[in-house]
Simulated assay, not measured.
Amino acid sequence: MNYRKIIHIDMDAFYASAEQLDNPKLRGKPVAVGGNSHRGVVAAASYEARKYGVKSAMPSAKAAKLCPDLIFVPHRFPRYKELSAQIREVFFEYTDLVEPLSLDEAYLDVTENKIGLNSATLIAKEIKSKIKERTGLIASAGVSYNKFLAKTASDMDKPDGLYIILPEDAEAFVFKLPVHRFYGIGKVTAEKMVKAGIFTGKDLRKKSLDDLILRYGKSGKYYYNISRGIDDRKVQPLRETKSISAERTFDDNLYEFADIKKEVERIASISYDRYQQSKATDGHTITIKLKYGDFRQITRSKTSEHAINNESEFIETANALFTEVLLDEQGVRLIGVGIANFRKDEEPKSPSQLTLEF
């Protein structure tokens, strides 16, 4: 059987590492990129900060409590984009089949590559070395025969990791892997699986396709396949961004206006950070999504005549959309905020509003 050779490159603590790179005084210290305010959110945390439990998407106030010596620095997305461009130049020296997932990670298909090297592992080593040489930053790499396994592998030995999953080792690897470490299985779903007695890939594989679809909907087929090390998705070098969003499902439903408004602002801030990380910097339509305790769902959208590239405007628009929504005695179990309708201002304006798919 002919297997593809896929590499997943993931920059280690990218934003925080970039700040430590440019400011030697931050090296070796716990650093958080993001705003230190009542509604601030950690965009990235250095490994020194992660030892205290500080994570990305965590409210800044909570991060400061976990790590009293935490140093907050404002994000500098132009600098991160500059470094990301240098990193991608390295990728394209080996293959044109590069699928960026964000500024700091990408898939590469090196089955056929520009240097004629048969070993994906050696290519991954070269890429890591060139990134360090040209940018001063550290990357981790995962190597395998499909995207799921390569992505999972890159997270196994951080920082500065290089982890390989060979076809003959895939079954044993997946069998031992805890479900919370499966790429594509989120925290809430992993908790549901554990409650159902599914702790590892081996447990997951025992479930039939029908059972998984019944339990988890259309995602059930994906879970069925990855428990068998199957992922037929190709590396897609030209992916057009249709929307960028963030959402959260709450452990307990929210009932108070002030609590919901606070979460709308926090999630909007996370969504805006993701928007700024992407190349899609010309979004015109902001959408919020609310799901009530009885699973009814509503969305509200607003389209601006100009591209939205100001965080305050982004959050204020999300708040304005929220005030149009009626509270419900069932409470709110999920909130999502996103942006879409990416176009240049000089392009003809569409009179219709777009809705955003989450």
Rank of each mutant, 00 (worst) to 15 (best):
Gly201Cys: 06
Thr200Phe: 05
Ser219Asn: 15
Ile185Asn: 10
Ser129Gln: 14
Arg205Tyr: 11
Leu149Ser: 10
Leu204Ser: 03
Phe173Gly: 01
Leu122Glu: 15
Ser129Glu: 15
Arg134Gly: 01
Gly220Arg: 00
Ala120Ser: 15
Arg181Ile: 07
Lys176His: 05
Leu137Ala: 04
Lys218Pro: 02
Ile226Ser: 02
Ile185Ser: 07
Glu168Arg: 09
Ala196Asn: 11
Ile165Ala: 03
Lys132Ser: 03
Thr135Asn: 09
Leu137Ser: 02
Glu126Val: 05
Ala139Asp: 09
Gly161Cys: 05
Ile131Tyr: 14
Lys206Arg: 15
Leu166Ile: 09
Ser208Tyr: 07
Asp155Val: 04
Val174Tyr: 04
Ile127Gly: 08
Ala150Val: 09
Ala150His: 09
Gly184His: 01
Ile127Phe: 06
Lys158Leu: 13
Phe148Trp: 07
Lys125Cys: 05
Lys206His: 14
Tyr163Ala: 08
Lys187Leu: 13
Gly142Tyr: 02
Arg205Gly: 09
Gly197Thr: 09
Lys218Ala: 11
His180Leu: 08
Ile185Trp: 04
Lys158Cys: 12
Ala190Arg: 06
Gly217Pro: 05
Ile131Cys: 14
Tyr222Cys: 04
Asp210Glu: 15
Gly201Trp: 04
Ile165Cys: 05
Lys218Phe: 03
Lys128Cys: 14
Ala141Gln: 01
Ser140Trp: 08
Val179Phe: 00
Ser140Gln: 12
Glu168Ser: 12
Ala120Val: 14
Leu177Tyr: 11
Tyr183Glu: 12
Glu171Phe: 07
Ala170Tyr: 06
Arg215Ile: 07
Lys132Leu: 10
Tyr183His: 15
Asn225Glu: 13
Ile123Thr: 04
Tyr163Met: 11
Ser119Tyr: 00
Val194Leu: 10
Gly161Leu: 01
Ala172Trp: 03
Leu162Glu: 08
Ala120Gly: 15
Gly201Asp: 02
His180Pro: 07
Lys192Val: 00
Arg181Asn: 15
Leu162Lys: 10
Leu149Val: 09
Leu137Arg: 02
Ala139Tyr: 05
Gly197Cys: 10
Glu126Asn: 15
Gly184Ser: 06
Ser119Phe: 00
Glu171Ala: 12
Lys192Met: 06
Asp157Gln: 08
Asp155Pro: 01
Ser144Glu: 13
Ile198Leu: 05
Ser154Glu: 01
Gly186Trp: 09
Leu162Pro: 09
Pro167Tyr: 09
Tyr222Leu: 12
Lys195Ile: 00
Ile165Ser: 03
Val174Gln: 06
Asp160Ile: 01
Lys207Arg: 11
Lys176Cys: 09
Leu137Cys: 02
Glu191His: 05
Gly217Ala: 10
Ile185Gly: 08
Tyr163Ser: 11
Ile226Glu: 04
